[in-house]
């Protein structure tokens, strides 16, 4: 679903080059729930921005669903996002003048859907998320957890292929964090949506089946269900299994 090849991003800060991402390659499968973990400055947010097409890489390619996102114009990106991508922000980024329903229905408005149709969809998803009581409240009248649930509803309402989330639980207390995280896992798996989120919290990341750890702009670990996907690790594990095979077969040979 998402394919990254040799991605490199260099920022120029006051004449000095800062390498934020260095030769990153990875592959995220359709319907996979993936956490990108790292300390601040590790490049995890930069990676997310490149994946979602918010920024252009210095080198390398990002492909989503076969389309080369890293080479799209602003205009193409807008249409692409409209149809394929959902986004969840750390600070929710709801429009303060709109009610919960209107906020959730907002991305559908860009697609030119009728007001009645999009609000019906928005209401349904809000109800599913347990916000039936809060539908006509404005963001200012809701708690952080509620606001983020509206934000999540907004990301899912258009049934995108991929959802990106930037520290979605960063502004929430630990109890709510767990709740929200479970909700994200559940909905994306139910709808077979590829989900990529960034977090600095390794404990939280452990809830995800796929964990990519970044350090100084490089992937230092990439685990799927406890198995490393890194090439060198894969080589090592291959060797190891070969060795195991050999050691297992040697006694037989000895016996022979």
């Amino acid at each position: 679903m998402i394919k990254v090849e040799n991605l490199r991003k260099v920022y120029k800060v006051g004449g000095e080059k800062v390498v934020a991402l260095n030769n990153i390659s990875l592959h995220i499968e359709k319907g996979e729930f993936c956490c990108i973990v790292g300390t601040s400055g590790s490049g995890k947010s930069t990676l997310l921005n490149q994946l979602a097409g918010l920024e252009k890489p210095t080198k390398g390619k990002v492909k989503i669903n076969g389309q080369l996102v890293s080479k799209m114009t602003e205009k193409e990106l807008a249409t692409f996002r409209q149809n394929n991508i959902g986004f969840i922000f750390q600070s929710y980024n709801l429009l303060p003048t709109l009610t919960a329903v209107e906020n959730v229905a907002f991305p559908l408005l860009f697609r030119g859907e009728d007001k009645a149709v999009r609000e019906k969809k928005a209401k349904k998803i809000l109800k599913d998320m347990g916000l039936g009581e809060r539908m006509n409240h404005k963001p200012g009248e809701m708690s952080g957890g509620q606001q983020q649930r509206v934000g999540i509803a907004r990301a899912f309402v258009g049934r995108p292929k991929v959802i990106f989330a930037d520290e979605p639980t960063g502004n929430l207390d630990s109890a709510t964090t767990e709740q929200v995280m479970k909700m994200l896992l559940e909905i994306s798996q139910q709808n077979n949506i590829t989900f990529v989120m960034v977090t600095h919290d390794p404990e939280l990341a452990k809830m995800a089946p796929r964990i990519i750890t970044l350090k100084d702009g490089r992937i230092v670990s990439d685990m799927r269900n406890g198995v490393s996907l890194l090439e060198e690790d894969m080589l090592i594990s291959q060797q190891r299994s070969q060795e195991e095979n050999q050691t297992a077969s040697r006694p037989q040979a000895d016996r022979q």
Binding site: A78, Q82, F89, F110
Partner: peptide, 16 residues
């Protein structure tokens, strides 16, 4: 500015 950014991320076309 931020709101416009959000709209762009949510897929609002430049024309709109």
């Amino acid at each position: 500015t931020k709101e416009i950014g959000v709209m762009k991320v949510l897929g609002c076309e430049l024309r709109d």
